[in-house]
Design a protein around this nucleic acid. Structure first.
Lengths: 357, 357
DNA sequence: CTGTTAGCGCCTTCAA
DNA sequence: TTGAAGGCGCTAACAG
């Protein structure tokens, strides 16, 4: 099947290629006489002409492509963010090239180079981590970059994040409001901004109320179930009275903590109340259902995409960083079984279409 | 920052652009004298040269880009598939352009056109649905297409799927082995191959054992929690003795069924045993934990990518369709609380890195 | 309004 | 082993 080019269309319509080009370009159609436009369109249709965005991109110096770098596509939290980006791009004629950094600075570097070589118009990085500064700043010389979810302090790269400090505060407030005074947290890795801030916000709010924060020395190597269990066990093995409330830095760690409690024969929330983070689907189904912090991932994706589009168009944007507010979703793991949480607690995070295979 | 082109590099190295091009191409390096290669490389490094994949693609007629069309990025089942594709592409110098069809034939059509315009080397479609045949067959004239997860009968398009018929059989076998004889299923939409086959495999296996399949007339509009609950209620409202075992066509529907049971004061599995499908994360945490069918999503992604790469290279591949076997994961929703399921039941589906934010 | 001309940045003949 | 020339498919500038 010989691919049909603009030249073919032009020939069939009996016009020059540039005329054909103009006739087919929605922005330039007005420069061409009505009936010529019609003739060209007809020719294109008859030949099954499919424009070549590559050639066009080369000429125009714009690919209408946006790079997305995520740390891990398997992370359930990332899906709504990517959807938010996608949906915002849609209609603007942009498409997303997607890649995984896997929390590895080397890979981050390679991926950014690859994206640069493909001349994407901008890049949204959701998986930035301490250690990526160099690669990101270098890439930023060539392409507009927007950080999402995680940010890099002092990098000067615009970032759309969740207000994780606020998230930590919400958790602390909830515990305080329920009368807890022996309060602990299980920390995620400190080289990721999100976890640092959760820890800081939580600690600060407790301090404001003169309540000490109980912490084990270690942070989770990776914010996963096993680490949550391990840290919780360390916590329970400490001297002195055990905490009555524990803030885990994400839902999986919270579930690990639940298990550690169960295996020690301690009840949640009667002995220890627990709060998780992210409001992943499972939180509505754990036993007891988990109080957690819900983040507006979809919104965040949309805003990141919006920022990227603005950077593409203007190239002149001061540090338009932004931070979206989280919300606490109260369930039985802090309320106990006597209270009935709101009925819609199990709703998906983004409220959008939620089809399952 | 004036972008540096091959011409600049060539000038700095004191050679012609064609020589520079050859020197920088790993496949052609041998055509150039050693020291010339070195000089060119040095020049490239010094200038911070970044090749232009767009221009190169235009010339070579190959973009090293692969399109992925998914129905819904929010579907937790899709993540491992996309990861599998990504990881297989990685290292082959390919990258993925990703788009959502949202189970809408119009969108599917638009998305395929867009991908075609961008001259992707191949497309993997994970979200095919009855109604997409026309668009897909048309696109296939221009680009190699591989279906994944869902397939279209009689389309002749190669497909890497899960063996959903086998999945249905596994569910039936499990119920039969546990002595059930009043067995029902809650069906997902029949215009999606996966659900059709689950239903057929399940029904057939029961027939082989002369056990009738109890079904309500309706199928789920969309395979979600509310629909699972609704269908389960219809089932319980039927005349005659209610079923003792129910196969729901996915995990969310199963959870809906659990809720319908609970609200009627009936126990799972003592009154009714339940099996779900997909082994999404939540299944390990429901109450009771859900017996379900686990699908090798990551593997499937890898194989789909592999098939796509072969199509790109050869263009001459007979219908290399493939179907991957699912596995039943037994938990309390069928076993009861007396038995302890295997310890690793809650593991992520793909066994790969499982980082959480 | 339409045609001409001249590339975008790269790679691949072909000839030296 | 290297250089010269031409063109991938499209579009922007400039004429007419």
């Amino acid at each position: 099947m010989p691919k049909v080019t603009l030249k073919d269309v032009a020939a069939r319509a009996g016009v020059h290629t540039s005329t054909a080009s103009r006739a087919l370009d929605p922005d330039k159609g007005s420069l061409v006489r009505e009936d010529t436009v019609e003739r060209v369109r007809a020719a294109a249709r008859e030949l099954g002409y499919q424009g070549d965005a590559i050639a066009s991109g080369l000429r125009r110096g714009r690919t209408n492509t946006l790079g997305i770098v995520v740390a891990d596509l398997g992370n359930p939290f990332i899906a709504p963010v990517v959807r938010g980006i996608e949906n915002h791009l849609e209609g603007r004629g942009l498409m997303a090239l997607i890649a995984e950094s896997r929390d590895d600075p080397d890979r981050m570097n390679r991926v950014l180079n690859n994206l640069a070589a493909r001349r994407v118009d901008a890049v949204i990085v959701t998986g930035a981590r301490n250690g990526d500064e160099r690669a990101l700043c270098r890439a930023q010389q060539q392409i507009p970059i927007v950080l999402a979810v995680r940010y890099l302090p002092d990098s000067g790269i615009p970032a759309i994040t969740h207000d994780d400090e606020r998230g930590g505060q919400l958790a602390a407030d909830h515990f305080l409001a329920h009368g807890h005074r022996r309060i602990a947290q299980l920390c995620g890795p400190h080289d990721i901004s999100s976890f640092r801030e959760r820890a800081a916000g939580f600690r600060r709010r407790l301090e404001e109320h003169d309540v000490p924060t109980i912490e084990v020395d270690e942070t989770a190597q990776r914010p996963m179930l096993e680490e949550g269990r391990r840290l919780m066990e360390l916590l329970l093995a400490r001297h002195g009275e055990p905490p009555s409330a524990v803030f885990a830095h994400n839902d999986l760690m919270a579930v690990g903590a639940l298990e550690a409690l169960a295996s020690r024969g301690r009840a949640c929330p009667d002995d220890v109340a627990i709060i998780g983070y992210n409001d992943t689907t499972m939180t509505a189904f754990t036993h007891p259902p988990l109080t957690t912090i819900r983040l507006p991932g979809y919104e965040l994706g949309r805003m990141a995409a919006d920022t990227a589009v603005m950077l593409i168009d203007d190239r002149e944007q001061p540090g338009t960083s932004l931070s979206l507010p989280p919300v606490l979703v109260a369930r039985h793991s802090t309320l106990g079984w006597s209270t009935t949480p709101r009925a819609d607690d199990r709703r998906a995070q983004d409220g959008a279409a939620d089809r399952r295979r």
